[in-house]
Design a protein around this nucleic acid. Sequence first.
DNA 1: CTAAGCCTTACAGCAACTAGAAGGTCAAGG
DNA 2: CCTTGACCTTCTAGTTGCTGTAAGGCTTAG
Lengths: 139, 139
Amino acid sequence: MNISEAAKLSGLAAKTIRYYESIDLLDLPRRGANGYRRYQDGDVQTLCFLRQARQFGFNIDQCRLLLALYKNPQRRSAEVHHLVSEKLAEVDAHIRELGETRDLLAQLVGACPNDEASGCSIIDTLAGQPEQVVAEKKR
Amino acid sequence: MNISEAAKLSGLAAKTIRYYESIDLLDLPRRGANGYRRYQDGDVQTLCFLRQARQFGFNIDQCRLLLALYKNPQRRSAEVHHLVSEKLAEVDAHIRELGETRDLLAQLVGACPNDEASGCSIIDTLAGQPEQVVAEKKR
DNA sequence: CTAAGCCTTACAGCAACTAGAAGGTCAAGG
DNA sequence: CCTTGACCTTCTAGTTGCTGTAAGGCTTAG
């Protein structure tokens, strides 16, 4: 199959597939007589793997590692487990951080008069020195 | 004060301040006889404002809007309220999305044997077609 | 024969900085 | 007076993970 078919099946953009190839994340595919890239079912599996890994938040270098494990029948599942639980911890931390941000934003929204006047606690808070917000964060 | 002092007080990197200037987010500051940028307390307030707004997740263009409101004594607090509650909704959506990702990752971590053998449900799941994960997502 | 819809490469641009080079300025110490 | 180190200046290029655009070749249907 050609690249657009592989793209459709894998959920990646054709551009993205070429890009992955250009950064050596993917092996060079076989080419047809016309110079077109040709993909097999196994290649599509690999593309799917990458798409999912990216969706899970793994960056390109982490995908490289995961892909190496994926392709290596001698892998130890513990290695995979390690990578994934690290990512889980990262995502958890990110969520906590965003949660704090959300709470602060909600505070701002709640405290703003939301009217035609110029007085605005949001503006006042944002203009304040860092410590003020940090202090509120701790409460 | 010079730029590094303003940077320290505001919590922004000196490089970032110059960058903000280069994209017209900040006005050109006065310069000393030696060509060094000179900042006043009011400038530091503005820098703090930007730092906080960025930390709250506003992008540069949104910061431009917020900054205009900040500097405009004729602003209506409702405008500020609008911008901030939109951001709150965005952050909320982002958190929900990340929450789903986290749950899926936790599932993967839990299902992996985490041993010396090569069999690994994580690898298997990642290699699967999109629908499989989507289906799990819905459960 | 031509129009569309693929495919190819290569270069540019996005956000929001960050790093580095190459050089000017300033204050303190020997 | 000279040097050293910490500032400051501008400029260019790199980061991440693509995405857009241009300019051209292949393929297939009408």
